[in-house]
Amino acid sequence: MSLEIEHITKTFGEFTAVRDVSFTAEAGQIFGFLGTNGAGKTTTMRIILDILRPDTGSVTWNGAPNTDVPRRLWGYLPEERGLYPKMVVEEQLLFLAQLYGASARDAQRDLNEWLERFNIVENRRKRVEQLSKGNQQKIQFLAAVLHDPEILVMDEPFSGLDPVNAAQMIEAFGEMRRRGKTIIFSTHQMEQAEELCQAIAIIHRGRLVVHGDVRSVKRSTGRQVVRLSLTDDADIPWLDRLPGVTVTKRRPDFVEMDVQRGSDPETILRAALEHGSRITRFEIGEPSLNDIFLASVGGQVATDEGEATAPRDTVAVP
């Protein structure tokens, strides 16, 4: 059970939007699709949904070509948000669910459930234009899930959400995962990707640069990361003098460093104690998705640490 994207290429005139992209999203997974603006995320998603046809390559769900998959199995939250502004919420959602092929009764039952989960029962009979932006986003999400699809394709579902609404959206993702749905979503907000995804793909200028499940992607970088913070010293300058340690970030809340394979991270802990500092954080871990992302897209995204020098090598994950 999986969604397989195999060697898809799509050109618009001179411009190649997607070049030979292949990846697999296992059924029941939350799959993060990461990339900068214009990297080819939306085009890939439209191809997955059979809104666009690729020049070459194929998309299959459980072995069946996506063109043969009933529309009912697909849920789509497009990047361009939009609903009929003058239509009443309930009527609109039932219309869309039925248009996808759901029965009116099932859709009505699910609608009641979701409105309660999102705490927006009182908006049922309001027109969409009367709702706040956050609530409109929730309705937009419901428009993608109310017909009970198997595969949810969401283009930037977290953009424009405040922290409270983002938290509700993350909860809704969890609910869909409990129901065994497969979710593919694009984002450039790495915290959400880190929190939600079992697997990711990073696309850059139409090419896939990294893909695989999150843990193996992180491990494959070969980096060992230590995060340290001390009460009396924010910068911890002596770290620069330790052998085998390269400081990668100095943030107000911690200093992050790469530790060479083979050297023991505990030497850092010992050094800190020798300096007589109080340790509030010592963490041995893996690089964040954000770092992996920046490394793989060549660090062309503006960052506070100026990591534009990071290697551009493609990280291949078996």
Binding site: I51, R71, G82, Y84, P85, Y100
Partner: peptide, 16 residues
């Protein structure tokens, strides 16, 4: 033009 100006078009052509 409605679907385009309402931007609901992509949902509509995904469903129908």
């Amino acid at each position: 033009v409605e679907e385009k100006s309402n931007r609901i078009m992509e949902i509509m052509i995904n469903a129908a």
